[in-house]
Design a protein around this nucleic acid. Sequence first.
DNA 1: CGTCGGATTGAGAACGTTCTCAAACAGCGA
DNA 2: TCGCTGTTTGAGAACGTTCTCAATCCGACG
Lengths: 349, 349
Amino acid sequence: MARRRQAVTIKHVAKDAGVSLQTVSRVINNEPNVRLAMKERVQNSIDRLGYVPSIAAQRMSGSRSYLILAINDREKTIAEWHSRSGTDWVDQMLLGGILTCSQYGYRMMVELVDTHNDHVERELSATIAALQPDGVILTPPHSENRLITGLLAKKNIPFARIGSVEPGPGIRLTMDDERSARMATEMLIGLGHRRVGFVAGPDDYSLSTWRINGWKAAMEQAGLPTSGLLQHGDFRFDSGLAATQSLLALASPPTAIIASNDQMALGTIEAAREKNLDVPSDLSIISFDNTPVVRFTDPPLTAVDQPVAATISKAVELLINVAKLPLPREPINIEATLVERASTVPPQN
Amino acid sequence: MARRRQAVTIKHVAKDAGVSLQTVSRVINNEPNVRLAMKERVQNSIDRLGYVPSIAAQRMSGSRSYLILAINDREKTIAEWHSRSGTDWVDQMLLGGILTCSQYGYRMMVELVDTHNDHVERELSATIAALQPDGVILTPPHSENRLITGLLAKKNIPFARIGSVEPGPGIRLTMDDERSARMATEMLIGLGHRRVGFVAGPDDYSLSTWRINGWKAAMEQAGLPTSGLLQHGDFRFDSGLAATQSLLALASPPTAIIASNDQMALGTIEAAREKNLDVPSDLSIISFDNTPVVRFTDPPLTAVDQPVAATISKAVELLINVAKLPLPREPINIEATLVERASTVPPQN
DNA sequence: CGTCGGATTGAGAACGTTCTCAAACAGCGA
DNA sequence: TCGCTGTTTGAGAACGTTCTCAATCCGACG
């Protein structure tokens, strides 16, 4: 294989414009102190020759890599993927990220990493050494992994933690999960429900705990019991099905259920069908995430909309401008909203 | 911002092991003609120091970039994304690609490009100059864009064209769309349907034409008319809805409809609901793609399964090994299968 | 008209790796 | 033991960019 070279380099441009490499470099990077006439002359050569700087060379000489690395949970992603049940996070994250990155001349790369792995630190460390990204975005549950955040802080690489309120290094972008869960619960209580079941996510996602707290708070404030109405799932369809089966098998089963993500809510629908319960008249359902699928279920689901894409987009902007802007020390909160659809009505019994 | 340097470089390893840079390089790249003892000594230093080569530097010195670039249709992707109707291709592509890439120490990056843009060539050319990928994967409709394929061929960058049977440069991985459509149509005819409507995709996707041909062929072979039973959509929900509305407004409407992707099939369901038609007893439906959503619609949809992820995975493997293996001159065909669900029954009238 | 200081430009080193080519080494037959 | 050949190792250039620092230019001021 022949050594592949850059077609047009900065040298060609410099020669064409009759200036030094350095001047071309200055024009490329839009640096001050270049005379306008000179700038135009160089830009002209750049355009005519179709020159584009090599990112590899830029990175080499100590500049930026124009790369943002987004870290996602491999275990969850692959499981969802193999079960063909949708990979909503990756999806939204990637697109929110790619579009925002491209506005700034950056790129985004998605890396899948196992949190439950002794080698996380080594694995991620190697990736960073190899790619040298300008910024890293951590999604749950990585955003709370001390090994990872410690590593990034030590390497002095700007990073954003999505969905974690825990103090520590890095920019934090949080969804107020407690508030969202409270909001959803209050809506159901407002409709007249008194037994509202909750299907939570796994324990190693701190958002699971926040959501449980929100649900409990709303129930207790209304003087309603929560005992026995809490189940845990793992964000997959099957776990939502099983959790709901348990809830519906109670002596006095809930008249409404909140599921911690859309996939588990699909399981909830399925469990109701199995028992010949009508949704929503026998069982109201609210889910979290509001991914595309919930518009097309029967009935369409009322859901808490987590603006994942907007969050990632914001994270990208902050990371890219990290040098220019003062870093927010406090978490930036991203507002979730409740999207009402046909799955929530007053209890019929 | 301080000039960011590599923590551990090949020099550190060389010094630590007491050998030259070149020897370390040889060990990294697993080259022959290194004495076993020497190899072990160097590997030892590498492990102990936690050395990982800088991809930027490797690429700079003429080696590989360990990057595969996947080109997707920006227009379609963004439209789907904003309408929150799912971005199935990107999703599957990305994951199939990422997982396979990581097996070989490569990475995948997704780039969104507009085909309907005079600057496609320039835009893509710039991306390639900047990133210098080792291979490029083109998905429809880019896989048939002569400007793009010509550019890649000229730059001598290995590339794969997904879903295009058109002759020309590049590795071709095709789904036999004519066959799939024929298969779906024949299944419906086998159930007793005589009026089978077809909602095709846009004209600039050549697969649209192939699928229409397959549908027509099956109908004609069974001696059934096709006139008036063909509608075009743009792969989005709304267009599927509108196309189906037209079909159902016919004097003798179809008893079954094949939609060219899942999103349009959702529109078909919606159109049937509006007319108070029961799916499947009044209207059978088959869709293309078999993305996660069709498992959860009411009823779940019979669908042609396009193994997108497996296809991308294969493309990645071929591109990575392009130097070692002889290039396939003929298109590699990826078999689609028909997944039967509850949306297809014999006609009831 | 000379001088000073900031603005503008350029020369050469540096970044971390692989490539090219030459030197040292080892094995083998005579 | 010598010479030949193929294997193993190393030295220095090359890759394309930016950084550092020095040189030049230009306008204004005395």
